[in-house]
Simulated scan of single mutants.
Amino acid sequence: MQAELWLGFIVFLRIAATVALLPGFGEQSVSVRVKLALALAFTLIVAPAVSLPELDYSTSTLATLTLTETISGLLLGIGVRLFVLALQTAGAIAAQSTSLSQILGGATIEPLAAIGYILMVGAIALAMMAGLHVKAAQLMIHSYVILPIGLFSAGSDIAGWGIAQIAHAFELAFVLAAPFIIMSVLYNLALGVINKAMPQLMVAFVGAPVITLGGLFLLFLAAPTMLSVWLSALDQFMANPMGHTR
């Protein structure tokens, strides 16, 4: 019984840190009590699949495990959370390209751009429908192979992994926002040609409604493809969280 309780506690440390950052489960709108219940539920699922190494159960061991397991859980959670931030960045870029928001709308204390919020809510709903809870449990179980219990990862490895994940998140954001960027470039080129041909025409007043309507129409067309690409990238990461290390 003592060994089982220790195993449950050690697994809970990593699971709780991961759940706090998972899309859907770790959102700010979810209460702390619900997050705690989710962490306990995931612990009951993950713990039977984890083997506990030989430990002396001393105070120093407890402090070491608390530190290592919490850090490991945070690393996993941050890796998954970066995909949500990539989607928010893509929404901010798309909103800026269509003159609907500031480009840093998702990085400030102000509310997120409308396009980014729509994409984020849709992505979380799609991920839940695709079995995010099952994939998250598999990720947590697999994490004990790549991040063993009680061991610190090398700082250089973590730094390289983190840089690769951030670079991949920005790459994904620009890929998702590419249709809006292309449309914005073509629109501004056409606006410049019209302004050159007809200097007396107030092209800004004529073109502003056009770019807004075009952006909304493009969002209607591109959102399903954007979300499917995002979900595919998320699935690849959760199947192999160290796959983007360069």
Rank of each mutant, 00 (worst) to 15 (best):
V46S: 05
K35M: 14
T43Y: 08
E69T: 08
L55T: 04
T43I: 06
Y57I: 07
A47G: 03
L40K: 00
V50M: 09
K35A: 06
L62N: 00
T64F: 00
Y57D: 09
T68K: 08
R33A: 12
L44V: 13
K35C: 08
A41P: 00
G73I: 06
P48W: 13
L67I: 10
I71G: 00
T64C: 09
A47H: 05
L67P: 01
L55M: 14
T70H: 08
L62M: 14
P48M: 06
S60L: 13
L38D: 02
T68V: 05
E54F: 13
G77S: 03
S72Y: 02
E69W: 04
L67T: 10
I45W: 13
A63D: 09
P53H: 05
T61Q: 12
L44S: 13
D56C: 03
I71A: 13
S58V: 07
V46A: 06
P53A: 12
A49F: 13
I71D: 05
A63H: 09
S51L: 15
L75S: 03
P48F: 12
A49H: 14
S51A: 15
L36D: 06
I71E: 00
L44C: 14
L36F: 12
L52Y: 10
T70G: 12
R33H: 09
P48L: 07
G73T: 01
T61C: 10
G73E: 06
A47P: 00
L40T: 00
F42C: 00
G77Y: 04
A39I: 00
Y57T: 08
A49L: 13
L62P: 01
S58K: 07
V46Y: 01
E54C: 05
L67W: 11
V34W: 02
A37V: 14
K35T: 03
G73V: 11
